[in-house]
């Protein structure tokens, strides 16, 4: 277990910590590194990490100056380990938000082997699990906001697929929640979704609403974007005014 899964460091303190917990029955070997990447959306509207082949000065990368202490450790079963993250930003770092991804690699014990006897062929895999988590470094007063455009909807099987172009505004990534409600002709909610969103530059996510049992006809889709997430402490999130929009849709 790793907590938190979204890491924030303020320029004034330049440090934070994460907690690792091994709920398993065997020791786990941990290594920690950082890379620069940020989320974009793929052709079907799913978030995916974009990792540039090379970094240039325009990229707000913190990956090069975040250090973990310790970087490597062995965590015994049911034990926890606190890892301190220290930032050593370059002198004269301009105000802004800087991003990295923390890569927490975990390796289990010895490779498991198949059941073949000593005369046979047995197979075992050494498993390594890498958890890649967002890390945000903030300096100065920052603002965020969201622009919503190009809301479209299409039916796909027993789902209504809703897409919207989300453009970050201000000087920091927009971290929040997208909520959608499909309202029937009677004004009652017929289907809904609620998904965390992370808009670093621009994304065009797709959200699915189950419509299997809904009769054909006109509906109203109400969308709401809030700068809050239940999995992230409110004081860590930059606030932005809620955004609401709605469109007419017709289910076949």
């Amino acid at each position: 277990m790793i907590a938190p899964h979204a890491i924030y460091i303020d320029h004034r303190t330049r440090s934070t910590s994460i907690t690792l917990y091994n709920p398993g029955a065997t020791s786990v070997e941990i290594a920690i590194a950082s890379i620069f990447a940020y989320p974009v959306t793929d052709s079907v509207g799913q978030l995916t990490l974009f990792t540039p082949d090379s970094l240039d000065a325009s990229m707000p990368s913190a990956a090069g100056w975040i250090e973990a202490f310790p970087k490597r450790m062995l965590i015994a079963p049911l034990q926890r380990q606190t890892v301190r993250l220290l930032a050593r930003p370059p002198q004269g770092l301009p105000d802004g938000e800087y991003w990295a991804r923390l890569v927490v690699s975990a390796k289990g014990g010895a490779a498991p082997a198949g059941e073949a006897d000593s005369d046979g062929i047995s197979i075992g895999f050494n498993i390594e699990i890498r958890s890649i988590l967002p890390l945000t470094y903030r300096k100065g007063a920052l603002k965020t906001g969201l622009g919503v455009s190009d809301i479209t909807s299409t039916t796909a099987g027993d789902s209504l697929m809703v897409s919207a172009k989300l453009t970050r505004q201000g000087t920091a990534a927009y971290i929040g929640t997208a909520k959608g409600t499909l309202l029937g002709p009677d004004g009652k909610a017929a289907a809904s979704f609620e998904e965390p969103i992370a808009v670093y530059y621009e994304v065009e996510p797709t959200f699915a609403l189950g419509t299997a049992a809904l009769p054909a006809g006109p509906y109203r889709l109400r969308l709401e974007f809030l700068s809050e997430r239940p999995d992230i402490s409110p004081e860590l999130l930059l606030r932005a005014p809620p955004l609401r929009d709605s469109v007419e849709v017709r289910l076949p």
Partner: peptide, 16 residues
């Protein structure tokens, strides 16, 4: 040949 054959497998999971 008989023997224990091993290889490394890495799972990457990126959270947003």
């Amino acid at each position: 040949p008989a023997g224990l054959y091993q290889a490394n497998v890495t799972l990457n999971a990126a959270y947003f």
